[in-house]
């Protein structure tokens, strides 16, 4: 499933990122890595998805919906 479809307040593991190099580089530098944990904090149907990388503290990242649709995730307990 995509990050956009995943439920909020759940632990997710990123399995695949389908995007061009620029976006992928940006995601990497901001702490979005394949095989790592992500918490989907909030889901604004009219706008971006809010995520948090627990390894990187409490700062959240807003990813716009189109981008969230390109990030494949699976639930992680």
């Amino acid at each position: 499933m995509t990050l956009s479809e995943a439920q909020t307040k759940t632990n997710l593991k990123i399995t695949y990122i389908e995007s061009d190099d620029d976006i992928r580089r940006k995601l990497l530098s901001m702490g979005i890595h394949i095989n790592e944990l992500l918490i989907k904090v909030n889901d604004n149907k009219f706008g971006p998805v809010l995520v948090l990388n627990p390894l990187y503290g409490l700062t959240k990242l807003a990813l716009d919906r189109e981008l969230a649709e390109k990030i494949q995730v699976e639930y992680e307990n």
Binding site: S19, D22, I23, K26, L27, M30, P48, L50, L58, T59, K60, L61, A62, L63, D64, E66, L67, K70
Partner: peptide, 10 residues
């Protein structure tokens, strides 16, 4: 438009 990646500070 390219996707937004925006940091939301504490």
């Amino acid at each position: 438009p390219i996707g937004l990646i925006l940091e939301i500070p504490n």
